[in-house]
Design a protein around this nucleic acid. Sequence first.
DNA 1: TATGAATGAGATTTCATTCAT
DNA 2: CATGAATGAAATCTCATTCAT
Lengths: 201, 201, 201, 201
Amino acid sequence: MDRRVRASQKRRRLTAAAARVLHGQGVERTTLADIAREAGVPAGNVYYYFKTKDELVRAALSEHRAHLDELTAALEESADPRDRLKGLVKAWVDQRETAARHGCPTGTLAVELGKRADGTLDAEAGAVIRHLLDWAAAQFRALALPAPDDLALTLVSAYQGMSLLANALRDPTVMTREGARLLRWLDALGGPDGPDGPGAR
Amino acid sequence: MDRRVRASQKRRRLTAAAARVLHGQGVERTTLADIAREAGVPAGNVYYYFKTKDELVRAALSEHRAHLDELTAALEESADPRDRLKGLVKAWVDQRETAARHGCPTGTLAVELGKRADGTLDAEAGAVIRHLLDWAAAQFRALALPAPDDLALTLVSAYQGMSLLANALRDPTVMTREGARLLRWLDALGGPDGPDGPGAR
Amino acid sequence: MDRRVRASQKRRRLTAAAARVLHGQGVERTTLADIAREAGVPAGNVYYYFKTKDELVRAALSEHRAHLDELTAALEESADPRDRLKGLVKAWVDQRETAARHGCPTGTLAVELGKRADGTLDAEAGAVIRHLLDWAAAQFRALALPAPDDLALTLVSAYQGMSLLANALRDPTVMTREGARLLRWLDALGGPDGPDGPGAR
Amino acid sequence: MDRRVRASQKRRRLTAAAARVLHGQGVERTTLADIAREAGVPAGNVYYYFKTKDELVRAALSEHRAHLDELTAALEESADPRDRLKGLVKAWVDQRETAARHGCPTGTLAVELGKRADGTLDAEAGAVIRHLLDWAAAQFRALALPAPDDLALTLVSAYQGMSLLANALRDPTVMTREGARLLRWLDALGGPDGPDGPGAR
DNA sequence: TATGAATGAGATTTCATTCAT
DNA sequence: CATGAATGAAATCTCATTCAT
């Protein structure tokens, strides 16, 4: 295995480690040494792959976005957009233990980055969330529902809200309860009662 | 005005400054000097009132809880619990600019504190959120709706979700759009279609 | 009770508290607040009785010297100087638990003060020890023993040594064992074997 | 000379500097900057080698113990245990100027560390002293004297006592006088009067 | 590339001492 | 006299980043 390959493996290990540790400990409480240790890379070496700590944060964000892309790609195996959306909700509920411990990786990262004075990285966290919004809107649009963007907003908003509460209350059942409601909502959408959002009526 | 009075004023000034600055910059990026400056107090003096930085965070949390109590007290001037809840949603929407800039004070604090290994303060952030849940549940119960706790969870979860998204996307209209939906939902709740709760159909 | 009396009581309380706390925690690890608390005096008030922390240390030293004077006065009720010296040793052994916990009050104070660059207070600690040396020498002289100053040095040195070891090893039996030896030595002194010091032959 | 070698040299320089400065100024009055300056190392760099100040204290203690081991190793060139013990006493007397200025390095360290509430490091100071006790006891045992542990206690105790007094009185002749007595005592031990040990009779 | 070592800026915290009433 | 409040200097410790090999 030549240098080039080993190097890109190390980069990948560092990226994955950054995603894990930053999710668990938050950006500000994570040191480069933490990430290096988790990746099994000597601390001084990190700078050959990432010039600054912020670049590691960026890499973690792209890792989360990649996970998201994998998930949506898998969901697209279903032909029915409604099934895709329900699959998304089920995937969220499956992650309930992680959510209760650390919240949504992207959402909590967005919160931390939003506190920065210089608005550099927070835009990138927002972009990952917008990516999810866009995907959800596309599904709602495929269902020929009105205001698909608003429906997407409602869905993703509910996800971020339930993740935050599960985390703040350290209670994974928050995910289960809200998840069940979202599934009912998705099933009812476009039915006789009109498309007014979750729990409409 | 004697020493005693001035002193407790200073304590209050510090608490208010802590709440403001911690909301704006986050816990980890805020130094004691930041809070002292905002309060107009010499840095060394802060420790006369708060023995550690964590105590300032605690004070900020209690400040947020006090704000919440003020708000709910004002809402209780309405006799109708439904109006109270709608008033709550309107208050959230009124704060849309702040939410877009910094998110929900308590929610973002909970996210940051949740990243700590030592789980002391995050419980207190969770308690403030639970306080809001309890108040909302009481209103739903007064409306004789079934599963008032779940309804409260849905409502507060929606608030945290829309605040997080408004903040991550730097877009206050998220608050407006989701707020409008929540108002329609509250109006419809317990309506002609039976008391099935949110997401019914 | 008039002000004057109350004031001097407070001064005495502070002095006693200083002696106690400085012995237990050492000079450098003791704050004025510690002493004020122990004395039941408000912190800001201490400065009316002692202008600096060093003056409190000085007061503690004089307290220890006063204790020493009380002890020697009591010992002088014995007519026989040898009994007086043996009484002194017995008093030391009686304090074995304190010695194991905190060492000799004056000795440990002298060690700490000896570390100061400016040789101000260490001389005063030395003076208390010299006072004990002088008293012991007087007893040896009264016994018509040769080189009473050396005998005193041996005795006091043994005391400081056994206190330090009892403290360092956290073992009060050091006091018991060495104390027993010193008693045998005092008994033997001036006997047929000559006055060559403790354990001579 | 490569990095690795220079680094361990620096560590050694820091350890030696810590031993020197802590002996001279005491633990509490010594700052990390003092030690860094003495070692010719930038202050921020100290933490690369020692994570806390306490670790520097620990290193200083091990340095003192190493000195002690060197000394006893040299003494063991004498075949006669009595000569070894007399050599020890002579070494102490040779250090009289240092003792008068700063006391025994290990003894004064033990005193300071004994004042701490948290009893972690003081045990290590005690261990160094116990190490000396053990060595001395082994010599007395080799001389077939009864109660060698008590004899060792007497000897080491005398050393700590005379060091403390020399320091407190700023008088190196204390070491000379007590040292001479100890030499006579060692010579007489186990002599014509029977093996009753120190204080016999 | 790789890596242990180095660095310095900055954060939290402590406390003797002084002030104002 | 009394006292809560105030202050600033200094100490420990952390860490992102850079250096030298």
